[in-house]
Design a binder for these strands. Structure first.
Lengths: 156, 156
DNA sequence: GCTGAAACGAGGTAAGC
DNA sequence: GCTTACCTCGTTTCAGC
């Protein structure tokens, strides 16, 4: 994970559809070297996937919520593979504190959201926080030690 | 947004690096038709971007937290473009309830996390929930009305 | 939206440093 | 480990239907 790997990660986090050739131009490395490095990042599990991001509202999801689940008894959303497969559940995090997990849920309507809450209730006490807007939807990961971009040399 | 658009979204959410030709094979549409539809989805803002996802731990981020900010006074993280640019702040959501916003923060160490909390404190009361693990990191958006995949016709 | 053709670009390989 | 050169293949784009 040197500065060249981070340069590649920066570009691929910004635009996952860049070709190896275009990447090679941006990071000033030859295409074969770029291809090898990217494959290494993939097989090492540093890159977990390439995903198109879809606008929730334009996809008809007008309700976004974070639900804190306080599970009790034998059932828990963390242990139930069924809940993890519900299409309206986009993320599940196990957390510290009073709650055992936090779910990111998106639905088309409040009616659908109410249905989700009803289906979650048997697992424990759901506490919903509605998302009004999202000023920052996503940020790419940057290198820990401020690595200087080596892509702006005069050798173009 | 017909079923063909959703088929393309399904594939691109799963693998954003697929070529138009490969997409055309998977959804059983000609490459030019695929290219036109994808560009329409991009310009319409349905697709907001294509992003490589990076493993947080492998990128050296061993601390993941959700921070509820109860802002007071004139300053608020929602209004401050500086906080939105902090590299350790990956998401910011404005929410209902006691808190005004929830931040997803990742740092290399607890020491760095403590520093983030200190820098957030002037904006309001930060309440941190640590993420222990993430059973479901991300789920692709699926069509609202169960759309039957039209890609399995016998005309291959 | 499909087909066909043509041009362009991309990706992979191998040799050399 | 990176680079350059080459070659093959795929992809993209445009035409017309």
């Amino acid at each position: 994970m040197d500065s060249m790997d981070w340069a590649l990660l920066r570009e691929l986090q910004d635009d996952a559809r860049l070709s190896y050739s275009e990447l090679s131009r941006r990071v000033h490395l030859s295409p074969p070297a770029v291809a090898e490095r990217v494959r290494r990042l993939e097989t090492a599990g540093v890159i977990t996937g390439y995903h198109a991001h879809v606008d929730l509202t334009k996809a008809g999801r007008h309700v976004v919520a974070l639900i804190r689940m306080s599970c009790y008894g034998p059932r828990c959303v963390l242990r139930d593979p069924e809940v993890l497969n519900w299409p309206e559940v986009l993320e599940v995090h196990r957390v510290t504190g009073d709650a055992c997990s936090i779910l990111k849920v998106v639905t088309a309507s409040m009616e659908d959201f109410e249905s989700t809450i009803d289906r979650l209730a048997p697992y424990g006490q759901p506490s919903s926080t509605m998302v009004l807007s999202t000023p920052l939807r996503w940020r790419p990961l940057s290198p820990l030690s401020p690595t200087v971009d080596q892509g702006s040399r005069s050798s173009e």
